[in-house]
C-alpha cells in the first residue's frame, strides 16, 4: 500500500502527499504554540525587567529564578507539570514560557543598562522625567538587544515545541513522536525538516524586524 520508493528511503513522498492537510494543520499549531509562548514571555519579561530596574533589590531574585527555570531540562519540566496540570496545552505553554524568560529578561536588562551614561545624563540634564526617559530614550536604544533576545527565544521555542509532543501538543513535533513510536522515518523527517524550516524563517523574520526598527544602526554601518 505504501511503496512509491524502496523501503530504505527516509521519506516516502506519497505519504507526505496524502497527509498535506495534517501537515498544514500541525504547522499552524506549531506557530500558534510558539507565538503564544513568546507573547506571554514577552509581557512577563517586560514587567519583570521594569521591576528589576525600578526596585534594584528584586533584580537578583528575578534573574536567578528565570535562570533556574531555564536550567531545568525540558523533559524534567514536563515531568513536574504533568502530575499537576495534566497532558494539556496549559502544561506545554507553562514550560515554553518559562524557557523564554531568562533570555528575554537578560537581553532587555543588558540593553537598557548598556545605554551610555552620557546619553542618560544628557536626557536628565535636559529635563526628561524618569518615565519619559525610559519610553523615548532607553527603550528604543535597548531595542536591538531586546529583539536579539526575542529572536533567540523564538528560535529556541520553535525547537522546544517539538518536545511538547510528549504531552500531546507538539505541533510538528507530533509527527516526530509518532514516527519514533512506529519506527517510521517519514513522519520523523517531516517533523524535523518542518521545525527547522520554521526556526530558520523565524530567525530571518527577526533579523528583518531589527533592521526595520533600528534605522540609526543601519546608516552607521554603511
Amino acid at each position: 500500500m505504501i511503496a512509491a520508493q524502496g523501503p530504505d528511503s527516509l521519506i516516502w513522498w506519497d505519504w507526505v502527499g496524502r497527509h498535506g492537510d495534517e501537515i498544514l494543520h500541525k504547522t499552524l499549531e506549531h506557530i500558534y504554540l510558539t507565538a503564544v509562548a513568546v507573547g506571554i514571555g514577552l509581557i512577563l519579561a517586560v514587567m519583570l525587567s521594569v521591576c528589576a530596574l525600578r526596585f534594584n533589590w528584586t533584580r537578583s531574585p528575578i534573574v536567578w529564578t528565570s535562570g533556574a527555570l531555564y536550567g531545568i531540562p525540558s523533559l524534567a519540566l514536563f515531568g513536574f507539570l504533568v502530575p499537576i496540570t495534566g497532558a494539556s496545552v496549559l502544561t506545554a505553554e507553562i514550560a515554553l514560557v518559562s524557557y523564554t524568560l531568562l533570555v528575554l529578561v537578560q537581553n532587555l536588562l543588558a540593553g537598557i543598562e548598556g545605554v551610555s551614561p552620557a546619553v542618560r545624563d544628557a536626557a536628565d540634564g535636559m529635563g526628561y522625567t524618569a518615565s519619559r526617559r525610559f519610553i523615548s530614550i532607553e527603550f528604543p536604544l535597548a531595542l536591538p538587544q531586546f529583539i536579539t533576545g526575542l529572536r533567540i527565544a523564538t528560535v529556541t521555542t520553535v525547537g522546544l515545541v517539538t518536545v511538547a509532543a510528549l504531552v500531546g501538543h507538539g505541533g510538528l513535533g507530533d509527527f516526530i513522536n509518532d514516527g519514533l513510536k512506529r519506527n517510521f522515518s517519514t513522519p520523523i523527517m517531516v517533523g524535523v525538516i518542518g521545525s527547522i524550516l520554521l526556526a530558520v524563517i523565524a530567525d530571518a523574520a527577526f533579523v528583518l524586524l531589527q533592521w526595520l526598527t533600528t534605522p540609526w544602526l543601519r546608516r552607521a554601518r554603511r
Binding site: 552620557a118 546619553v119 545624563d121 536626557a123 540634564g125 529635563g127 528604543p140
Partner: peptide
C-alpha cells in the same frame, strides 16, 4: 521641580550626549 528647572537651563556634555537613535 528638577525637570522644569532643567528644561529652562541649557546643558551640553562631551560629544553633546546626543541620542544615537534620533
Amino acid at each position: 521641580d528638577p525637570a522644569e528647572l532643567r528644561r529652562s537651563i541649557g546643558y551640553v556634555i562631551q560629544q553633546g550626549g546626543l541620542f544615537p537613535h534620533q
